[in-house]
Design a protein around this nucleic acid. Structure first.
Ligand SMILES: [Mn+2]
Ligand SMILES: [Mn+2]
Ligand SMILES: [Zn+2]
Ligand SMILES: [Zn+2]
Lengths: 121, 121
DNA sequence: ATTAGTATTAGTAATTATTACTGTTTATAT
DNA sequence: ATATAAACAGTAATAATTACTAATACTAAT
């Protein structure tokens, strides 16, 4: 993967926030640095960065969001303000349990808690 | 919500399978009973049935799938064959824990285990 | 049974998120 | 410096879903 100014900018944007941004959000930010960057470039690079394990993708309904944090962790999605916040839930030996009981080889565990966040008491 | 033949057909289709069908799959099935049913009708009724709590929606990446089983349970998604199979994982008092530690009011817990199912040993 | 009111429909257009194509630009190894 | 191909901008295409509209069909009241 050859260096590119666009990809480096996109990577820095994802690494600069804890908001789990969408491609559109990254695109809006990237345009401030590179005004004629194209949305296709943002999508292509987000995919490349994901495939290389440099960032990860999380699914918020039908919308893909990106996360610089590759440590295993989970998310709380607020239906009121749309925020998505990290949470570390104890997973124990879930993988082994599922392998033994269902013969299913788990490669990834996606846990999303949906509800109302602490900003709306 | 008034009776409609289309909606009843759609409801029966979702209740007839454990495959967690997509709107398209339900549409293909519904056409066998009602050849001129429209895809919009399928989407509208799947949404209505979901809003009424008669079925539930689960998210498979960017694709919405539907489930007649409203009991709290989780899913194993096979990346090889695309199947989505039920699994009941012990959730304990997750809701209370999250409420106490993060002041986040959980209304729904979505857990998807991604990996390879027992058909591909 | 007929009528009136409106929820629902089929058909189609529009929207949203994302991917594919294409001719041009640019990183980088020689 | 030059060659090569990866990456780009711009645009078109696709997939899933939602919105619009005039016609149809439930259902409650006459
Ligand atoms: Mn995260
Ligand atoms: Mn299920
Ligand atoms: Zn919130
Ligand atoms: Zn499988």
């Amino acid at each position: 993967m050859r260096y590119s100014h666009q990809r480096e900018t996109i990577r820095e944007i994802v690494f600069s926030t804890n908001s789990h941004p969408s491609a559109d959000w990254v695109y809006a930010r990237a345009k401030k640095a590179i005004p004629n960057i194209s949305l296709g470039t943002v999508y292509r690079n987000l995919k490349q960065l994901t495939d290389q394990g440099i960032i990860r993708v999380i699914h918020d309904g039908s919308l893909a969001r990106y996360d610089w944090n590759k440590e295993p962790h989970d998310h709380m999605k607020c239906t009121t303000c749309g925020s998505m916040v990290d949470i570390k839930l104890p997973n124990g030996n879930l993988k082994n349990m599922v392998k033994n009981q269902h013969n299913f080889e788990v490669s990834d565990v996606e846990i999303t808690l949906i509800g109302k966040c602490n900003k709306h008491d």
